[in-house]
């Protein structure tokens, strides 16, 4: 693309964005919707983390959609990259083998992987208490796989196991949602379990449970994606 064609565009976009930036004034109070959330989440859901409360209850439908997005990307990337011949490019495999990771990286990974996995678990189960949750935790969990992939050429991502796990987690999420209809106020309502003591690990109804399922699912999905990209 000739830059001469792009520059006027950037100027125009700059004008558009500039009109936004110049006219934007920082909020001093919460908008009513947000204020309601901040009050409702601790009171009604028993979750200290308002964001998690919104994500896993009020806007859980979004979250479900997001899970579906990741699920589809795992499937789609599998479609795109999974069907290729295993050794279609001898260059490629040779090159991968040519520079194996150093011993330091390999053994470093040995030590770090359980640690990172533990962090992931911590983040997932503390989703309702701190700045974590299923997605963040899932991402960290998948980074274990990334670390293994980077450090160990012989490591093979087990797509079959992962896809079973992600499917099960997905089904459990949907079932949890249906349970919300049956036992509580609606689809994906978290109050099917007791709210428990505010701020404790086991509290806020089904949010930790949902968070764990989400974490498992997201972790599996991202792992599958990482594995597919390894080529």
């Amino acid at each position: 693309m000739p830059r001469a064609a792009v520059i006027p565009l950037l100027v125009a976009l700059g004008v558009v964005f500039g009109s936004v930036a110049i006219n934007y004034s920082e909020r001093t109070v919460l908008p009513p919707l947000a204020e309601a959330y901040v009050e409702m989440v601790p009171r009604e859901l028993g979750a200290p983390n308002v964001i998690t409360g919104i994500l896993l209850n009020y806007r859980a439908f979004d979250t479900l959609g997001e899970v579906a997005v990741l699920f589809m990307v795992a499937a789609g990337v599998g479609l795109l990259l999974g069907g290729r011949a295993k050794t279609d490019d001898p260059d490629e495999t040779q090159r991968t083998a040519a520079v194996p990771p150093s011993e330091i990286v390999r053994h470093g990974a040995d030590i770090l992987v359980p640690l990172v996995a533990l962090f992931a678990a911590y983040i997932v189960v503390h989703g309702h208490l701190g700045p974590g949750g299923g997605f963040q935790g899932g991402a960290v969990a998948a980074s274990c796989i990334l670390l293994l992939v980077l450090a160990k050429p012989e490591y093979r991502v087990k797509f079959a196991q992962l896809s079973v796990m992600e499917s099960l987690a997905g089904l459990l999420i949907v079932l949890l949602g249906v349970a919300g209809i049956v036992f509580a106020g609606g689809f994906l309502d978290n109050r099917i379990l007791p709210l428990g003591e505010f701020g404790a690990l086991f509290s806020a109804g089904a949010i930790p449970l949902l968070s764990v399922f989400l974490g498992a699912k997201v972790g599996c999905e991202l792992s599958v994606i990482i594995g597919r990209f390894r080529a």
Partner: peptide, 20 residues
């Protein structure tokens, strides 16, 4: 502790790449 663990590994990997 985590930074102590990770930082030398990443800089080593980077240096090794540069060296390679």
């Amino acid at each position: 502790y985590f930074v102590f663990m990770t930082n030398p590994i990443s800089s080593h990997a980077l240096a090794r790449a540069a060296y390679g």
